[in-house]
Amino acid sequence: MRLIGAALALTATVAGCVLGGMAGRAQAFSAAPTAPGATDRGKTTGVGDPAPDFSRLDLSGKPQHLGAYRGKTILLNFWATWCTPCVAELPRFSAWQRRYGGEGLQVLGVSMDDDPRALERFLHRLPVAYPVVRGDAALGERFGGVFGLPLSLLIGADGRIVARLEGEVDLAELEHEIRSQLRAPAENASR
């Protein structure tokens, strides 16, 4: 009985930590879209600004041009293999690409790994359903700086940044926002 009691106490403690963490992520998500420019550190990549264009080869050697996805809702995800919260998000992003890709969603991963071999090994073991390009300091700077991971930008069909999400986010809320964007691409494009 003592063990069961200890187990239940442990469950309550850990569940409290987990739920507390989720609440924190939810705040992070809701804060970014309603505070234009608040997280862009003075650069021109805040909410409402046009997303900077770039071209990079993905890991399969195919050119990835951000501007070519104009008209789609883009989830641009800066991540790295050593970033535990980033890796936790990848399966959901893959699922979204498969589920919403036909409705106009394009997920694009930007790996900030220093070691390209580590990235290739990782994606060989855990492939994702969307293209991944290698990032660097110059690309990060174009997006207002990538000074911690994960960092995701949700870009509307009109090419403007809808949300800038630093750290762990509430993925349910992010999915809700993506679905909202997918429902109104024409409205967004006309803004």
Partner: peptide, 9 residues
Amino acid sequence: GFRVLFEEA
């Protein structure tokens, strides 16, 4: 930490 983040800032 990681070099790419150091190079940024």
